[in-house]
Design a protein around this nucleic acid. Structure first.
Length: 295
DNA sequence: CTCCAGGGAGCCT
DNA sequence: AGGCTCCATGGA
């Protein structure tokens, strides 16, 4: 096992690991101590979080002056990528809309960073997110790992990573329904099949202009505009992407009514112009703030 | 009991 | 393109 620490002084802007990993933007990190999601600071904010990238287990926690990590490999650069620690939060916030709601959200969770989840896990977890509560989305990913993940030895402990595309592609719809995925089961199986066969992959999306990338992603089964935006924002680093879910639609009705253009594409465009070049950042702060009871 | 959750597919016009 | 309807599951 290798270890390291990233001093917070080396990170441009504030860092808040708990807000970053428990704001509903990623379902691929969990607490190895078994704590349930959203236990609200019961660990003093210094709990370890765990994820798996490829064949490597990676853990991170926040201490007073650093983000500490331990992993099956040298993960110093990887942790910076996964947790958005390279993003200059000061510059990003300066570019954000100055309206009261957005600023209140930024104030409440300063240090929340946009994650860069591995593509396939992000894609599958957000397909699972359709009409589902945050807590249960976590539970579904846990089931997928336990049932289909490859075992990895981590300092004597066996850790199961997110399933590989080929493995999920070979699962049957009924297998996945047994994991309580409901009507998302065939979506997950067929999308895994598309990735595994090469019919449509990360490489077909990455690097393309934002709206074209979103259109490409909707080629996956179970992926519409909203889930596509989640993958663009939380995996591929398109910081302008603004997933328009039920929370954002309500926020737009109540606080940005002139951005409501009656359809996803046009409302998205108007909302992005309002929130600025890093619209996805402010969107994620708004989502977490509103869902946690603000305003 | 009903309602709803980080929506999308299929089918209709 | 835009507007239905249905889709599993579990907690409030």
């Amino acid at each position: 096992m290798e270890r390291g620490a990233i001093p917070v002084d080396d990170v441009p802007g504030a860092v808040d690991l708990q807000s970053t990993l428990e704001s509903g933007q990623t379902y691929l990190w969990w607490r190895p101590d078994g704590a349930t999601y959203e236990t609200d600071g019961a660990y003093g904010g210094d709990a370890w979080y765990r994820t798996v990238v490829g064949d490597d287990v990676v853990e991170a926690r926040q201490t007073e002056d650093a983000i500490e990590w331990r992993a099956t490999t040298d993960a110093a650069d990887l942790v910076r990528d996964l947790l958005g620690l390279r993003d200059d939060l000061r510059e990003i916030r300066r570019a954000a809309t100055e309206d009261d709601l957005a600023q209140a959200a930024w104030d409440a969770y300063d240090g929340l960073r946009i994650v860069r989840d591995p593509f396939f896990g992000c894609l599958i977890s957000f397909i699972c997110s359709a009409q589902m509560r945050v807590e249960r989305i976590f539970a579904m990913q846990e089931s997928l790992r336990a049932e289909y993940g490859d075992p990895i030895d981590f300092d004597g402990e066996t850790v199961y990573g997110f399933p590989r595309p080929e493995t999920l592609a070979e699962a049957t719809e009924d297998d996945l329904r047994d994991l309580k995925l409901g009507y998302r089961a065939p979506y997950v199986q067929r999308t895994a099949e598309m990735v595994a066969s090469g019919e449509l992959t990360e490489e077909d999306v990455r690097g393309r202009a934002y709206e074209l990338a979103r259109e490409k992603l909707t080629g996956f089964v179970g992926v519409g505009d909203k889930v596509a935006d989640c993958v663009l924002l939380f995996s591929l680093g398109y910081l302008e992407a603004v997933p328009l879910d039920t929370w954002m639609q309500t926020a737009i009705e109540d606080h940005y009514p002139d951005c409501d253009r009656g359809n996803y594409a046009d409302t998205s465009r108007a909302f992005r112009e309002r929130l600025g070049p890093y619209a996805g950042y402010t969107q994620t702060y708004l989502f977490h703030y509103l869902r946690s009871g603000g305003e």
